[in-house]
Simulated assay, not measured.
Amino acid sequence: MLAGNVRWLARYRHPRCAGRAEIGQRLREVFASPAPLLATAERAGDRIAVLPGLFHLMWQQELVADLAAARLGPTTLVATVGSVGGAR
């Protein structure tokens, strides 16, 4: 599971996937505490604009999820690094 999720996120490693700075900031705000990936990302804006930035921040390990537990999906819990009580 982990390898598949990391391969998926690797597609979003290029800085162009980050999108506008305000999208990244909004994603950090809405994921300040663990929340489901899709519903919470949609609170940050249009999913077409937001999801690449979300996956880029996950690749950068600014937003984290348990990548070993299950395939990334709409209900995967995502949070900022500091909100899950650990360093990278």
Rank of each mutant, 00 (worst) to 15 (best):
A3V: 12
V81L: 15
A87E: 11
G45M: 05
A44K: 06
A69R: 13
L51H: 00
R28S: 04
E62D: 10
A39P: 02
F55Q: 06
A79I: 08
A32I: 10
W8D: 03
E29C: 06
V64H: 01
A18T: 06
R71K: 12
V64Y: 00
L38D: 13
R16D: 14
L51S: 05
C17Q: 12
Q61E: 14
V30M: 09
A68M: 08
V81S: 12
R13G: 02
A44Y: 10
T80H: 00
G73W: 04
L51E: 13
R11W: 08
E62A: 07
R16T: 03
R11E: 15
A87L: 10
A32W: 08
A70C: 08
S33L: 08
P52C: 03
L38Y: 13
L27A: 06
G19N: 09
G24L: 09
D46F: 02
Y12R: 06
D66V: 04
A44Q: 11
N5M: 11
M58L: 10
P52H: 02
R16W: 04
R20H: 13
G24A: 12
G45E: 05
R20V: 09
G73P: 06
R88E: 11
F31A: 04
T80C: 03
V6S: 00
L2G: 14
A3H: 10
L27E: 02
Q61N: 11
G85E: 04
A70L: 00
R28K: 12
T75W: 10
E29S: 11
A41H: 09
G85R: 08
P34H: 00
I48F: 04
V50W: 05
D66Q: 09
V50R: 02
I48K: 14
A3Q: 14
R26I: 02
T75Q: 15
I48Y: 11
A10V: 09
V30S: 03
M1N: 09
R20A: 14
A68Y: 02
P34E: 04
R16Y: 01
R28L: 15
T75K: 12
N5P: 05
V50F: 04
A49K: 14
E22I: 13
E22A: 13
H14F: 00
R13K: 12
R7G: 05
R13Y: 00
A10I: 01
L54S: 02
P52S: 02
A18C: 04
V78F: 04
P34K: 01
E22T: 13
F31D: 02
L38R: 15
